[in-house]
Design a protein around this nucleic acid. Structure first.
Length: 614
DNA sequence: GAGTTTGAAACT
DNA sequence: CAGTTTCAAACTC
């Protein structure tokens, strides 16, 4: 007779029997359903609490050996059990596994499950099992020939009795405990780790079994890895995919698309807001950490050795769709061929050889747009801005003072006195400015302020100085200011910082301008990223009209910013700025500033949104 | 719901 | 250990 021996009808009685029989462990090992339900959240369990389980039951198991221990169920040392402990649920059929399996206490690294999936990582777990994080119903197997006594059976593999399943000739129940235990023994004999988590535990330890993604999530790895051939590891046939983890070096899959950065994988997440947000966050973080410089790629993974690599790789070459994502994957497959494929992502050859635990890392579209040099140059630009702002403020102040003097017909003596005072307030600022300025910049200042005393120089704001400090290395020292200037600047900073209210206002204004320009720069970067993303998308979709050169090199960047570059070169501050590459990316900011920002330092409407945005 | 596909588990 | 078979879930229609 084919029936579900662990049927729901008998659920209560079976559970009661189990609870009674295994009273001692009942608390630690909640019922079966719960076990599975809570599967999904147990990865976060602390290793300590998890490892305690096997040790706890080990004495019992040791005494049982091959014998059947119907009374004291041997729970599988799996993470989900810990979850059960945390949230004890009534009537569950926790099964006892022979202590064999606990001979080597499994380690349950604290892993944040990408997805609430069975720790046991039994693939093919019905989605109905868990919805909105709250398990509704235990997964019901449909075994027909295995009697639910082989790992084919999810329930058995999960270490739980069948309960309400649709299986035939089920022996995975309390009534057939002897047979079940035999099966358990046999299974453990074949594979001592058969009932241990496939995901999360590792012979190398918890730490080795986890990897961190761009967003900081710690993802688990499949201990054995999958061996998928046709599913691309993007279907639930794949254990890794089903567990919502990325394939790892442990996998031996072919044509894997379940790696970070895989477009196919990302596509799957389209429509799934939650997952999409995770991806976006990963991308954002990756952009922050990896967008700058040619090392936009993190470490392209590495790992997997695929039997179908050659074949798979060959398909990539002519398949744009696979380039960006799998290209990265390919980097750890056949690094020798990577360079030729690195066109889209950009220069990543240097990283191709990088070997790391992580498989794939997101590479920002801006990776080849922003170089370390750009940052330095940006800082220089901002420094100049700060100086310009300070100067402008001083000019305005002087102008207003002079106007006031004229109106009041103040005496020459008093005027001089005020002038001296003014120097105290803002004059030092110019000193600082000139310290960091040289060449044309200095000339410009002297020209514009020919009527002013040379000593009427103002210090830069603390924020500007901070930039200066960061810039005090190569670029700046070489092209903007001499080391002596910087030294002087620093000295002046420390000695002249304490200024009056005037200086505070100046600082605030300087910083506001700098921040505003920085914001503009970031906005521009975003725009460039959008443009590039669009182009990449078109390209990936097979839009053959796009010239790849524009994508990878500075093509579109240079053309887009050429005019800006020109205008920049005509700007008043050009000599103070290190040349060119910044002009490609940041010239718009500079140009804009030269055109309208500095002359009107006080423009609340323009700067008012700086705070919120930044 | 039946049939097919898939890949892990089991077997040789 | 590799190849084959069995099995049940996932998937397709």
């Amino acid at each position: 007779m084919e029936k579900s021996e662990g049927g729901e009808s008998s659920d209560a009685s079976v559970s009661a029997a189990v609870a009674t029989a295994a009273q001692q462990v009942a608390v630690d090992f909640p019922a079966k359903k719960l076990a599975r339900q809570l599967d999904f959240t147990v990865f976060g369990q602390s290793p300590a609490s998890v490892t305690a389980v096997p040790e706890q039951i080990q004495p019992i198991a040791m005494t049982s050996g091959p014998q059947i221990v119907p009374v004291k169920l041997t729970p599988l040392p799996r993470p989900q059990l810990q979850q059960q402990q945390a949230q004890p649920q009534p009537q569950q059929h926790m099964l006892l596994m022979p202590m064999k399996q606990t001979a080597a206490p499994p380690t349950y690294p604290s892993i944040r499950p990408p997805k609430p999936e069975s720790p046991r990582a039994r693939p093919r777990q019905s989605a109905s099992e868990v919805k909105d994080g709250t398990p509704k119903k235990q997964k019901q197997c449909n075994c027909k020939h295995s009697r639910c006594l082989k790992l084919y059976c999810e329930c058995f593999a999960s270490g739980i009795y069948c309960d309400g399943c649709n299986c035939n000739n089920c022996h995975n129940n309390v009534e057939n405990e002897p047979a079940r235990r035999e099966a358990v023994d046999a299974t453990l004999e074949r594979n001592p780790h058969a009932f241990r988590p496939k995901i999360a535990s590792s012979p190398h330890g918890a730490r080795d079994n986890t990897e961190e993604t761009g967003d900081g999530l710690v993802l688990a790895k499949h201990n054995k890895g999958c061996h998928c051939k046709k599913s691309g590891c993007l279907k639930k046939y794949c254990e890794c995919f089903q567990a919502n983890i990325l394939c790892s070096e442990n996998c031996k899959c072919m044509d894997c698309k379940n790696f970070e950065g895989s477009e196919e994988r990302q596509a799957l997440f389209h429509g799934d807001h939650a997952n999409n947000m995770v991806y976006l966050q990963q991308a954002a973080n990756a952009a922050i950490t990896g967008a700058i410089g040619s090392s936009g790629y993190g470490s392209p993974p590495v790992n997997k050795k695929r039997k179908g690599q050659e074949l798979f790789f060959g398909s990539i070459i002519n398949d744009p769709v696979h380039r960006q994502g799998q290209l990265q994957q390919g980097s750890h497959m056949k690094s020798s061929v990577l360079p030729s494929l690195s066109s889209i992502p950009g220069p990543c050859v240097g990283n191709a050889a990088t070997v790391g635990p992580s498989k794939f890392t997101y590479r920002s579209l801006l990776a080849d747009l922003i170089q370390p040099q750009d940052l330095k140059e940006l800082c220089s630009v901002l420094v100049v801005y700060s100086g310009e702002a300070a100067k402008m403020l001083a000019d305005e102040k002087d102008a207003s003072q002079k106007q006031a003097e004229g109106q009041t017909e103040a005496s020459l003596a008093s005027s001089s006195q005020e002038r001296v005072q003014n120097q105290k307030d803002s004059g030092t600022e110019k000193d600082m400015l000139d310290c960091c300025s040289s060449g044309d910049q200095g000339e410009k200042i002297s020209t514009e302020e020919s009527s002013l005393d040379v000593s009427k120089r103002r210090p830069m704001s603390p924020g500007t100085l901070a930039l200066m400090c960061d810039e005090s290395d190569t670029m700046f020292a070489a092209s903007v200011a001499s080391p002596n200037d910087l030294a002087t600047l620093n000295c002046n900073t420390s000695s002249q910082l304490p200024h009056g209210q005037g200086m505070t206002e100046t600082y605030a204004e300087q910083e506001r301008i700098v921040l505003t320009k920085f914001r503009d720069c970031l906005n521009r970067l975003i725009t460039l990223g959008d443009i590039k993303e669009t182009k990449c998308s078109k390209m990936v979709r097979g839009a053959d009209s796009i010239d790849q050169k524009d994508m990878i090199g500075n093509g579109f960047t240079t053309t887009e910013t050429r005019n800006q570059h020109d205008s920049f070169n005509n700007g008043v501050s050009k000599s103070a700025l290190p040349q060119p590459r910044t002009t490609q990316l940041f010239s718009a900011v500079v140009t804009t500033a030269n055109n309208n920002a500095l002359p009107k330092v006080h423009r609340p409407d323009e700067n008012r949104d700086v705070k919120p945005k930044i």
